[in-house]
Amino acid sequence: MTVASAPRARRAPGHGRLLTGVAWALLLLGLWLWGKDITSGPGGLSAPTTGDVAAVGRPLGVPLPPARPPMEPAAPERLEVPSLGITAPVVPRGLDEDGAVDPPPYEEADTVGWFRDGAEPGTEGAALLVGHVDTETDPAVFYGLSSARPGERIEVRRADGSVARFTIDDVRVFARDEFDPGKAYGPREAGRAELRLITCGGTFDRATGTYSANVVVSAYLTDALPGDPA
């Protein structure tokens, strides 16, 4: 039922590895939350890209719609990013023993994890969705995440039948020595419903089995479809 975010292209030998590179950034999330109100929401993860630090920003001539007010709480069930071909179930996840967001197991590499102790997608704050970039042999759900661009749409189908529609406004690749948890996980504007999609990026180190960076796609709520009547 799940669809990878990119065709299963042939990978260089040894390049596809476990998503251990995600842990360092999400460990910072655990530390960052010590000094924050956890319900105000944090961030996400992405796929390989060239270079360790990059920022796409807003392309000239791409108007972004106004934000709409936050929705009532409801757990996410499915993520869709039409421009990237991502259609994937969303499951709740917590922090592991190291204080990092625990992504879905590798057996479910085409599933997205939602940080259940943060904001729900569509509610005030920044909701965090994390996913694997690859496994030892294949691309995973967020393999193409670094190809996202501002102005593109993200939809989150929620447990009450409603659909939260987000517009991407920022795509960044954070290297280890440039990583800022506040920028990655914190809300950009007070009172707004925001979303972060997060995975590994940068270059892969075969010796350590880690990536050098994390991709963070940021979006904000611009539209919504109502849920089932109570």
Rank of each mutant, 00 (worst) to 15 (best):
T2V: 07
S5Y: 06
A6T: 10
R8G: 10
A9E: 05
R10K: 11
H15F: 11
R17Q: 08
R17M: 06
R17S: 05
A23M: 02
W24M: 05
A25S: 14
L33D: 10
L33G: 06
K36V: 10
I38N: 08
S40R: 15
P42W: 13
P42I: 14
G44P: 08
L45M: 05
A47R: 02
D52E: 03
P59S: 13
P59E: 13
P59V: 12
G61D: 14
G61W: 12
P63Q: 11
L64N: 13
L64P: 12
P66W: 06
R68F: 03
M71H: 03
E72Y: 01
R78H: 12
L79H: 06
E80Y: 02
V81R: 04
T87R: 13
P89G: 04
R93P: 00
G94D: 09
D96N: 15
E97G: 02
G99Q: 06
D102C: 04
P103Y: 02
P104Y: 00
D110A: 04
G113S: 04
W114Y: 04
F115H: 11
F115L: 13
F115S: 09
R116F: 03
G125C: 11
L129C: 07
H132N: 01
H132E: 01
T135D: 03
E136S: 01
E136V: 01
D138S: 05
A140L: 04
L145K: 05
L145N: 06
G151E: 13
R153Q: 15
I154T: 07
A159M: 03
D160L: 04
V163Y: 08
R165Q: 14
R165N: 05
F166E: 09
I168L: 14
R172Y: 11
R172V: 15
R172S: 10
R176Q: 04
F179T: 02
P181E: 03
G182P: 01
G182Q: 12
E189F: 14
E189N: 09
G191E: 08
G191C: 12
R192M: 13
R192N: 07
A193G: 13
A193R: 10
L197N: 11
L197H: 11
L197Y: 08
T199N: 09
R206H: 02
A207M: 00
A207V: 01
T210K: 02
N214E: 14
V215N: 07
V216M: 09
V217M: 07
S218I: 03
D223L: 07
L225Q: 12
P226E: 11
